[in-house]
């Protein structure tokens, strides 16, 4: 499966004691290099992760999802990753769909591949997300960054080493989705979207979460 390319799966985790076991049970049977970033969880996430043959990085202070992903990227790059995959700790993505993201990179056709909830496979997306939040997110991406993709907030992605070296995630919180998309376009990377399935449990942004993302994007634009 790994085709002598070193694939690193990066999983940010914050208070994921209920879900992380099932994710790691499945992932560890298929991938060798799994990096979990425990973002200062207050539950037993860290103890659970320690039972698995993975790399555990402990954030001593909670820095949120974007910061955790960049910590994982830095570790993976330092340890010779060829391909980096961003995965989720709460079981919303399917392990067997990782190959759909890395295959286009393995074939040498693309630099970065995003999973999209809006292509052939149909995720059961809540009505408010599908009809209000995502259309608004698309507009924000289009206005602020000139980006047009089917899924404006995709957190399931794979990228080459070179792409990860270029894309430094500076948004510590949840705005990393828009940021990575923006930088992928900015650096003129070869981008592909592939269909993905998302299992919605307690995942994602509600409307106020969306507002926070827009606020973070604007503040970073002003102060950077």
């Amino acid at each position: 499966m790994e085709n002598n390319k070193k694939i690193f799966i990066i999983i940010p985790a914050w208070n994921e004691e209920k879900n992380i076991s099932s994710v790691l049970d499945e992932l560890t049977t298929q991938y060798e290099n799994i990096v979990v970033i425990n973002d200062s969880s207050t539950d037993k996430t860290s103890e659970i992760v320690k039972k698995y043959p993975v790399v555990l990085l402990e954030h001593i202070i909670n820095r949120d999802q974007g910061a955790s992903l960049q910590t994982g990227n830095d570790y993976a790059l330092k340890n010779g990753a060829d391909i980096i995959v961003h995965f989720d700790a709460d079981g919303q993505f399917l392990v067997n769909e990782i190959k759909d993201l890395i295959n286009p990179i393995m074939n040498g056709d693309y630099d970065i591949v995003f999973g999209s909830r809006f292509m052939e496979k149909q995720s059961e997306i809540p009505w408010s997300k599908k009809n209000i939040i995502f259309p608004l997110a698309r507009i924000v991406n289009k206005i602020m960054f000139g980006i047009k993709t089917t899924d404006p907030q995709s957190g399931f992605r794979a990228m080459t080493r070179e792409s990860a070296e270029k894309i430094k995630i500076e948004h510590d919180r949840k705005a990393h989705c828009s940021e990575i998309l923006h930088k992928a376009f900015k650096y003129k990377l070869k981008i592909k979207e592939v269909p993905m399935t998302v299992i919605y449990n307690r995942f994602g942004q509600n409307f106020s979460g969306g507002i926070t993302i827009v606020k973070d994007l604007i503040i970073k634009k002003i102060f950077r």
């Binding site: 970033i37 320690k50 790399v55 402990e58 954030h59 202070i61």
Partner: peptide, 13 residues
């Protein structure tokens, strides 16, 4: 935080 996390990586692979 990132530097501390990476320097103290717990690798059980």
């Amino acid at each position: 935080t990132r530097k501390i996390a990476i320097n103290n990586a717990q690798d059980k692979r």
